[in-house]
Nucleic acid binder design. Structure first.
Lengths: 157, 157
DNA sequence: GCTTTACCTCAAGTTCACTTGAGGTCGTAG
DNA sequence: CTACGACCTCAAGTGAACTTGAGGTAAAGC
């Protein structure tokens, strides 16, 4: 038990990654992680899969849907030896996303303190309204993120 | 039509806020926004509801579930005149959340560039693993955010 | 007067990301 | 030998946040 196991059971993976076993089943069914089977038909995971799971959870926390996470992970085949450059290239879209999200949050944070209760009823000129409105465009885009900024029209007086 | 309407129809609200009419119906059913009816039983919205919708979308984009948005909005009754202090107090929990999320994103951003492909297989000592792992604890917390950090146990070798 | 448009209600359907449950297989411990 | 725990599959259920559809009203344009 204390010997360093080269591969992990699904239970061990779940414990280590902090997710439910059913979640790992689900991720595998979705093609996000991979495993092989031992003689008892039990899943065995390369320890590297642990990192994949960590990345999945991290990306999710940033609002990336699994469908997009899969795209990035697909660029890094399961059992290959991956270079930093490989990863950097694969994760590039997320970098942009993170930058955008950080900026959005900081703006929102500032506005929440300063303007949210300003009482200005002329929403067109309210410094809060437009940024929020822009945000709203990809609002539950925290969940769904097509990547298309999708110019919204009606903002006239 | 070009005169500044004091109140808005549901269609106008939807267009201005950039959401579907059905979404406004839904928000109203959920008690997030309010309206009155005209003689034809059509919804009429105070223009201030526009800001409430903007706030809802903004909060959602940061991962706040509607149930929590409602709590904040409930602290600011629909037709009252709201002071900046009122809002600041109501939105206080979000401020903390935003701070946390900004920090998380920045850390993730940095790690994504530097470590994600470092190839270190000793996950315990990998500088990426633990932060991500911590993240993973409230992973899809982008969607569900109980606020409980929920000390996870199994991290031994 | 008729048609179109914007609205109404209420029920049911959809997507995402899982979780739960039923029913079954191993391998080890007592 | 039996019990237990960890695993297996597959189907169905869950919750959040909407969307869609059916069936109906009301005012405005031609």
């Amino acid at each position: 038990m204390s010997a360093i196991a080269k591969d992990l059971s699904v239970g061990a993976m779940a414990a280590r990654a902090g997710v439910a076993v059913s979640t790992l089943h689900y991720y595998e069914a979705e093609g996000l992680i991979s495993s092989w089977r031992n003689s008892a038909n039990h899943r065995r995971y390369d320890r590297r899969e642990l990192r994949r799971v960590a990345i999945i959870r991290a990306a999710q926390s940033v609002g990336v849907p699994l469908s997009e996470i899969r795209i990035v992970l697909d660029a890094v085949p399961p059992n290959s030896v991956v270079t930093a450059a490989d990863w950097a290239r694969a994760a590039e879209p997320w970098a942009a996303r993170l930058d955008a999200q950080i900026e959005t949050l900081q703006r929102l944070r500032k506005q929440m303190a300063s303007c949210i209760g300003c009482g200005c009823l002329s929403l067109e000129t309210c410094p809060l309204y437009n940024p929020l409105d822009t945000l709203a465009a990809n609002g539950p885009g925290a969940r769904r993120w097509t990547g298309a900024p999708e110019e919204r029209s009606t903002l006239e007086g």
